[in-house]
Amino acid sequence: MLHFFPPGMLERYLLFAFLAVLGVLQLIAAHYRWVGFSLPGRQRWEWGYALGGGLLGSAYLWFFSRVQHLIFVPGLAGTELFTVFAASTLLALAATLTLVSLLHPSPALERQSGERAHFDPGEGTIQRPANSNQHPATVVVSDLPDGGFPISQLRDRLVRGGCVALSVDLARDGPVEYPEVLARLPAACAYLQDQPGVSHDGVVLIGAGVGGDLALRAASTDASVAGVAVIDPVPNPAATSLDLLRHSTLWEALRWGNLRRRLAEGLTPIEHRPHLRDRQVLLVAQRSGPTLPDEAVTAGAQVAVVDTHAEAIERVAEWVAELAATL
């Protein structure tokens, strides 16, 4: 099928298209902030632009200046060009996703700056302010995979703001399915309220991604919850497949993606939204996210659209402080 190619052209065009696709994928990763495609790594978007632009520019420059003697001779049929381009695209995609998975594994096991907390069912990390006053209680739930949002930074910020913070990790002590997962947050809330130095005025739940779905669902049935803050909830689990590569590598997506989808499908936080009318709700959506929450999710809630994780953390911490002052 490829007999029309001038000798030497097949491998040269394959290399050209491979490098060009690799460059375009890096530009896409840098522009849309996609961890799963970013060869320079998480948050190094400027390097991504430089690498992508460099690869794309070099590929074009090399091919159209050094391979001219093969370009300006008869030979190529469109079908062949398409076949070789498709092969190069698949190779570049596979190389990018594999390399990113190997070079930048998830920072899943975040540093443990607090003490381990064991409740039934579940485990977490608890952190308290230094003084012995009564402090507002907050429970923080991570996403799956948990490298997407820096939960430990949020916990640190809440503690600096005067809260006791218990983070619940959905993945650390093994996968948990729906509906068993529903028991985790009530158990965490009960554990937290039994701790010394914790105010009994109500717990504030904060969740990221599918952890946010769980927080919304738990708040709809737990009267001890005073408010819920949700960061990038999962309103449409069936549509979030590619979006998982925004904050995780392909390896992590393959490992946790199905569980995340099953949890989001089971939790259906939108359906349970009406039960939260008397509770304070904050929805934080990242502007670069897959989709902003629609009206069904935002009804009666405060909504904040932010650009960075740091901005999201600050917005949640301010909201918790305002809420705690009213309790």
């Binding site: 298209a17 060009a20 896409i28 159209f64 469109g78 060009l81 449409n236 590619l242 897959p290 989709t291």
Partner: peptide, 30 residues
């Protein structure tokens, strides 16, 4: 001569199509 050959525009069009595949947006738009 850059534009007339069989590779420059065809490859660029294919790369733009790749960008369209990965462009983010609401589920229906994607």
């Amino acid at each position: 001569r850059l534009f007339v050959n069989d590779y420059f525009v065809t490859t660029t069009l294919a790369l733009l199509l790749l960008v369209l595949w990965f462009a983010p947006g609401a589920p229906a738009r994607r």
